[in-house]
Amino acid sequence: MTYIQSLIDAIALGALYGLVAIGIALVFGVMRLINFAYGELITAGGYTLAYLNGQPAIVGILACIGVVLALALVQERVAFRPLRGASPATMLVATFAVSFLLQAVFLLAFGSRGKTVGELGRLNRAWHPGSIHVRWISLVSLAVGAVLLAATTLILNRTNIGLHMRAAAADFRTARLLGVRANRVIVFAFLLSGLLASAVSILLTVQDPLVTPDYGVQVTIFALVGVVVGGLDRLLSATLGGFAIGFATSFVGDRLPTSSTQFLPSVIYGLVIVVLLLRPSGVFAPLRRAAVERV
């Protein structure tokens, strides 16, 4: 039974990492930019929720979404738009700079001790079907992950802006020659990835309620590793990669003896090295890459 319980928790954490992976892959698709400052969107959402403790949950959730979307727009407009067309290395360094800058701002504004989010804590209560112990947050994470993945897929496949994003991801220059507005597509990608980051903030603060200046960094790095393992070039493979890393982290973490949990990152990164040696383009990337669609 503990095996099934571990499985459910692992799927729930996988869903959360999958959401982060989609957010990173969406922006990468249209800008060829790996946004390391994505974690700070999650952190900003966490602080918003922490500062609205005591307010109705819906107020905190809406404010969290609003703040994260606004910060995503600011990142795009102030930091990344002026650098558009710069070399990939410059863009990458810029995302590190934005990440460190925002962490410093959080540190100055909110201190190093962290703020606690308590409003949605009741989702940590468990449901007991038989001898299994399932936290509601696991089920909610799973449901939210599935709904947002489906919604993102629908937007990409059924709307004009989604079509423009897919075209821009495949060949931005040709898309622009056809009249696709570069700014509109990129802003939309940032907004969509911001929306996903706000969902991650809400779900993550239930499981880990202490928000610190580097709160979103670890989940972002793990998800990023997952994205690379899955295959950065396709939304589906990136999502599966994110899911896989979350799943592996939770499942392996549960299976390791308590005295060995500090070795969890080593085990995960060891697995990653093996996977990348065997499938450098990503474990979920198609074998034939002749007609790759990136988003």
Partner: peptide, 27 residues
């Protein structure tokens, strides 16, 4: 002004209809 670029540059991963719909962006 519409350009048919050298080498065609159609979007191989999209369907024929989706490629045509992209043309509507400038209409």
């Amino acid at each position: 002004v519409s350009l048919v670029p050298e080498g065609r540059h159609i979007f191989a991963g999209l369907t024929v209809d989706e490629n045509l719909r992209l043309g509507l962006a400038a209409r």
